[in-house]
Design a protein around this nucleic acid. Sequence first.
DNA 1: AATGAATGAGGTTTCATTCAT
DNA 2: CATGAATGAAACCTCATTCAT
Lengths: 216, 216, 216, 216
Amino acid sequence: MPGATPTARAATRRGEATRDRLLRAVRDVVADVGYPHATTRAIAEAAGVAEGTIYRHYPDKATLFLAAVADANRPVLAAMADLPGRAGTGTVAGNLTEALGQLAQLRQQMVPLELAMLTDPDLAAQRARLHAEASAGAGPSAAGLPDPPGLLADYLAAEQAHGRVRADLAVGPAAVTILAALLGLALAPGTDPSSATVDPGVLAHLVDGNIRSCGC
Amino acid sequence: MPGATPTARAATRRGEATRDRLLRAVRDVVADVGYPHATTRAIAEAAGVAEGTIYRHYPDKATLFLAAVADANRPVLAAMADLPGRAGTGTVAGNLTEALGQLAQLRQQMVPLELAMLTDPDLAAQRARLHAEASAGAGPSAAGLPDPPGLLADYLAAEQAHGRVRADLAVGPAAVTILAALLGLALAPGTDPSSATVDPGVLAHLVDGNIRSCGC
Amino acid sequence: MPGATPTARAATRRGEATRDRLLRAVRDVVADVGYPHATTRAIAEAAGVAEGTIYRHYPDKATLFLAAVADANRPVLAAMADLPGRAGTGTVAGNLTEALGQLAQLRQQMVPLELAMLTDPDLAAQRARLHAEASAGAGPSAAGLPDPPGLLADYLAAEQAHGRVRADLAVGPAAVTILAALLGLALAPGTDPSSATVDPGVLAHLVDGNIRSCGC
Amino acid sequence: MPGATPTARAATRRGEATRDRLLRAVRDVVADVGYPHATTRAIAEAAGVAEGTIYRHYPDKATLFLAAVADANRPVLAAMADLPGRAGTGTVAGNLTEALGQLAQLRQQMVPLELAMLTDPDLAAQRARLHAEASAGAGPSAAGLPDPPGLLADYLAAEQAHGRVRADLAVGPAAVTILAALLGLALAPGTDPSSATVDPGVLAHLVDGNIRSCGC
DNA sequence: AATGAATGAGGTTTCATTCAT
DNA sequence: CATGAATGAAACCTCATTCAT
């Protein structure tokens, strides 16, 4: 075993490290100079590799960007995935505040990348195609990948079942609204981009206003 | 007096018409293909003029974009400016629903342009410079131009004075949250961009959840 | 007489004034920003007219430049034309110093325009064509228009006839050399372009070294 | 040691060859069509590379031109650098004639580039900045780089010390005048640009008239 | 005669991508 | 696997010239 295909393994290791550096470089450069100025040159430089190296790991720039988005999305989804399981424990406001706080913090990191998706229809289209393929590949049953709005709606519905959220709340629109507000806050002009967190007062208002059971 | 300076006026007329066509072309092209693909060539074509014509009216592309943003912003501000005057009339929910509905409709139109500002730091910087100059030029007293969050907060405070909004509502954070949610909704993936309006259910939820006096 | 075709006359007057302003504008702009940056826009602005006005007086930019060169050349030729007639009067050194001093002063003014001719073969070709046509139009006898080297050589030859210049001086090469040195001095790096005159020491050296009769 | 870093060297080699081809292309194109028509397209074509290649080696067109000027200047300086060491050997006239003849020949090659510097103030300014930086970088003691007028003046002074040039000659003005004349001759209209040399008669006159010791 | 908006060819520069090393 | 020179299409912008007023 010692010495078995050492070069191949080392090479693989090296390649993975390079890919990681590239993904992080995409995030950094887009956050720094904006998507329109995030050129392959700038990204390669930030990653400390030659420009040509990009194309040894990704077939083109769009694919690299989508990989960076997926990579940045993972912790966001993880932060939300816990939520439904907590229904009935602690307090509703506490659970939401913690989850949304985490989410806001993470989203801040990936907002520039999400913006890129929103401003570039080509990128969005390619992402849609990838998602479609992924769903198809996973079989017909795997239609609904978990996404933040769905997870949040699930949690709210579960709390309704526990009687801890007013029964007449439309959980779908509420989830969408809450997350939209969070996104909107991250973008609002005047937001200090260096502070990674949302103003706690605003966050409290958001939670409180939306789920308050009617005991006011 | 009529006909006093007919040529001068005519000349100006033509130029103004061209400028208008250019501003609209910017909006259309950005909405269509996205800011990164909104080239001067595409804009000129959409406006029905030669590429060089752009530069007789605007010194560079950034200035053209900023002019388009300002132009698109005008009706948005107009829609909000009425609101504070309506405090005490009709119903709170009615006033807000109407104003936010209008706002959502208009914002939809200018969201792509605002996104451009958010993705391109250069553009944002130049806009900031322009605003600074405009404020300076208007004298030291004109510091605060009216903006949507301020106007909405003013309205909410006025309704508090009328006792039609619960007294403990923090009007500043509430205004910011509502508008952020509106912006977030316009961006949320899955929003049908062809429907210019926000889902009325969501809008109702937004108004209701945020300002509801405690009579539930 | 009063009121006789006043408009026509006024129009002509105005046209001539405009042409003059244009010629001077060409000189000023070329001297200021250099021939490659002397655009029709800059020239029109310097002349205080609209860009289109240029083409009411000159068929194209090259013709305008050549007219400006010819205009700037007139006083230079005038300064040299006197010289041959002065042979035998005053002192040789005095005559030359005065003529060359004047020439240097004037040339300074037109050096930028002459440089334009030297850097732009198209312009030079068109000038040559114009000269050829002028000569042809003036009849076959008018082949040799008076030019500075010829006039200077004529003067030196006349002084040789008076015995005031050493007999073995080759007047042709001497004239060419002197004028070339003058041109070279105007161009030499380190020449202060604001001082319109040549260093008197250098000028004295130039005169002295070239024509000194052998009494040293 | 051979083969130590073969790739790096090879890469460098290719780049260096391309740079050389570009520098020569600049000279050729400027000499051919004149500075105002020396477009990047024409230069790239003359060098046999794509237009974009220029910008991998030089940040912009101006820098490329300045590099071409510096490159063309090197042999000119080399031709003059020998001169001071020859004082006291051969004959004064022989030394000067040879050096100036070489200089004229070389200068002919670089006259179009020097003209470009003279007609384009932007270029001249950037050159001045570069020179200033170079001097500063070389330490405060390296203020005076050797330049042709200085070297020629040094030579003349040395010959004065040997008693082979008349003692009352002002070596500074003489050197300036001689070189200015050479430059002027290269530009003089009527000079056949295909003959790379200056008319020997004129050259003799130039040498003779300026340094002749008084034994006539 | 004069204006200035409009034109479109062409200029410099950028950039995603390919290829020889 | 990695490099970096090379490519060429396309981006933004300029400019001499034309044309409606």
